[in-house]
């Protein structure tokens, strides 16, 4: 009988990460990771002056 555990938030990393895993007989049988935040920067970039792109893409991650 498998058991499912969820760890959310995962700390000590940049961003909002969630991990779900299924455990069967002491072994992880399935696992999912998911980012819990979306800003749509790709969408924001559309139609802009290409010289402005770095201002946005640079801010995907500040680490």
């Amino acid at each position: 009988m498998s058991k499912r555990i969820t760890i959310d938030p995962i700390t000590r990393i940049e961003g909002h990460l969630r991990i779900d895993c299924e455990i069967d007989g002491g072994h992880v049988t399935k696992a999912w990771s998911s980012g819990q935040m979306w800003r749509g920067i790709e969408t924001i970039l559309k139609g802009r002056d290409p010289r402005d792109a770095w201002i946005f893409t640079q801010r995907f991650c500040g680490v």
Binding site: T6, I7, D8, P9, T11, R12, I13, H16
Partner: peptide, 12 residues
């Protein structure tokens, strides 16, 4: 503070 906290998930 999510980035600095030692505990994760439920503990946090």
């Amino acid at each position: 503070h999510e980035t600095l906290l030692v505990g994760s998930g439920k503990q946090a």
